[in-house]
Simulated scan of single mutants.
Amino acid sequence: MTGIHEIATLTSKGQITLPKSIRQTLGVTTGSKVAFELRGGEVIVTRAESEHQDPAIGAFLSLLEADIRTGKQVGALPVELAQAMLASAGHAVDFDEDIEGDVAL
């Protein structure tokens, strides 16, 4: 791979715009996350992997984020669902564990 050398200007707020060639090479677009690693005197910029690898969860979170950004009212969760979510918060989950009971899709 041929190296890419680009220069960006730091704003007074400490911001830079990643040059187009860098964005394309990293495969990042609006809303993507990038990671910075300081190695000696060099900064390594990489595409940050998404927290959620499940495409359905990622799509849902993107829709939810878009609604929040545009000011749409996000409806309240049913009380039972909110209570179940709070009860499960912080507990390890085994995604390979068999599901108990009936499942309706």
Rank of each mutant, 00 (worst) to 15 (best):
L105E: 06
Q73V: 12
G41V: 13
I7K: 11
A104Y: 12
R47H: 04
S12K: 13
L63A: 10
G14T: 06
E42K: 15
G27R: 01
V34T: 12
A104M: 09
S12N: 15
A82I: 00
P19Y: 00
G14S: 03
T17C: 12
G71Q: 01
A48H: 05
I57Y: 06
G90T: 03
G71L: 00
L105Q: 13
A89N: 10
A89V: 05
G41C: 13
I68P: 03
Q73I: 10
L63H: 08
G3M: 08
I44E: 14
Q24L: 14
T9L: 14
L81M: 03
L81T: 01
A89P: 03
Q15V: 09
V74H: 05
G75R: 13
S50C: 01
P55N: 04
R23K: 06
H91F: 07
V93G: 06
F60S: 15
I99P: 01
K72Y: 06
I22L: 05
L18D: 03
G90F: 04
F60H: 11
K20G: 12
E65N: 12
L63D: 12
L63V: 10
L105S: 08
L10R: 00
V74S: 05
E80F: 03
R39W: 11
H91V: 03
K13P: 07
G14P: 07
L77K: 00
G90H: 04
L81C: 01
G75Y: 03
D102Y: 09
R69L: 14
H5R: 14
E6W: 00
E42A: 15
D98N: 04
V103N: 04
Q53H: 07
S21Y: 01
T46K: 15
S21C: 07
S12Q: 13
L86Y: 07
S21N: 10
K72Q: 13
K20H: 10
L86C: 09
S32A: 08
G75V: 07
F60N: 08
I44H: 12
E42I: 07
S21M: 09
D98C: 01
R69E: 11
H91G: 00
Q83K: 13
F36I: 07
S50M: 08
A66D: 09
